[in-house]
């Protein structure tokens, strides 16, 4: 069964699950964007008379230990989790794309220098490195974002370097040089358009990781600080009530799971579609 499937059959492999996942992601993005209009309550409004209530018409998912609306906190939490993931992704991608393209296109000492730098960063497990950096910068969302960015870009740089080096040996790059195109024009018109599809795939898969990392940092108390609503931080705050009110941890946990699964499934389908290897670490 090695014969390639006709295009129509490949298309039919887009399962309903993929549409569901895409719907979840678009829905989450919508919720994050329009949080102030959707949330029934102020996520930080403390009302101790209403603490640890079950679901009711006023509080659809109930309240937490300080009487804050859980649904509103989840909705506002999507803002930070998704927003920061996008920010980390774009920033580390931009650095990685720049460094990787430079190293791959101009081999020699430029390549050596940049890649040894990447090796240095990659020599540490990334979580430990992020923890170390946050230890230096001090806890806080901004510091966590910067730390994650400083660690993530090396993986992009490595990947783009490899792709650029492979592309560089293609005959059409040699033809472009013979045809008088400058290095910048070759990168812009011949290299970047050909590494874009894999970029889309990796981006989708990495977004899931970024959300996980931010939540993990917040759960450890290093990222988002109280009282800001963020999924990881909500799990952190709810863990004291795990025996009596497990929903304090279950709802944000479910939200994280749903988003990461959706990103991964969409990414995997795109990887199959574009024939891209799914791992970069």
């Amino acid at each position: 069964m090695n014969t390639p499937l006709p295009a129509t059959m490949i298309r039919s492999r887009y399962t309903p699950l993929l549409y569901l996942c895409a719907f979840v992601l678009i829905g989450m993005a919508g919720v994050a964007l329009f949080a102030p209009w959707i949330a029934p309550h102020d996520p930080n409004l403390v009302d101790l008379t209403q603490k640890l209530h079950g679901p009711s018409s006023a509080y659809p998912l109930g309240t937490d230990q300080l009487g804050r609306c859980l649904l509103s906190r989840l909705i506002y939490g999507a803002r930070i989790s998704l927003g920061c993931a996008v920010l980390i992704f774009i920033a580390s991608l931009a650095i990685g794309l720049f460094v990787g393209t430079l190293a791959g296109y101009r081999d020699g000492w430029v390549d050596q220098l940049l890649m040894r730098l990447c090796d240095g960063v990659m020599a540490f497990p990334s979580l430990i490195l992020v923890l170390g950096l946050v230890g230096i910068f001090g806890p806080g969302l901004k510091q966590v974002i910067i730390a994650l960015m400083l660690v993530q870009w090396v993986y992009y740089a490595r990947m783009f370097r490899g792709m650029v080096m492979t592309l560089k040996t293609e005959a059409f790059i040699a033809a472009a040089r013979v045809n008088g195109s400058s290095s910048w024009k070759i990168i812009r018109t011949h290299i970047l358009p050909n590494i874009l599809p894999p970029l889309l795939v990796i981006g989708t898969l990495e977004m899931g990781w970024a959300i996980m990392d931010i939540s993990a940092m917040s759960f450890l108390g290093l990222g988002v600080q109280s009282p800001t609503a963020e999924w990881g931080a909500m799990i952190h705050e709810g863990k004291s009530y795990i025996r009596t009110n497990p929903e304090l941890m279950i709802y944000p946990g479910l939200a994280i799971m749903l988003v990461i699964i959706s990103f991964n499934l969409v990414g995997e389908q795109l990887a199959e579609r574009f024939g891209v290897s799914k791992t970069m670490k």
Binding site: F172, A174, A175, T189
Partner: peptide
């Protein structure tokens, strides 16, 4: 070049 598919973007 020989391989026309490789020689064009």
């Amino acid at each position: 070049f020989q391989d026309s598919f490789a020689a064009v973007n």
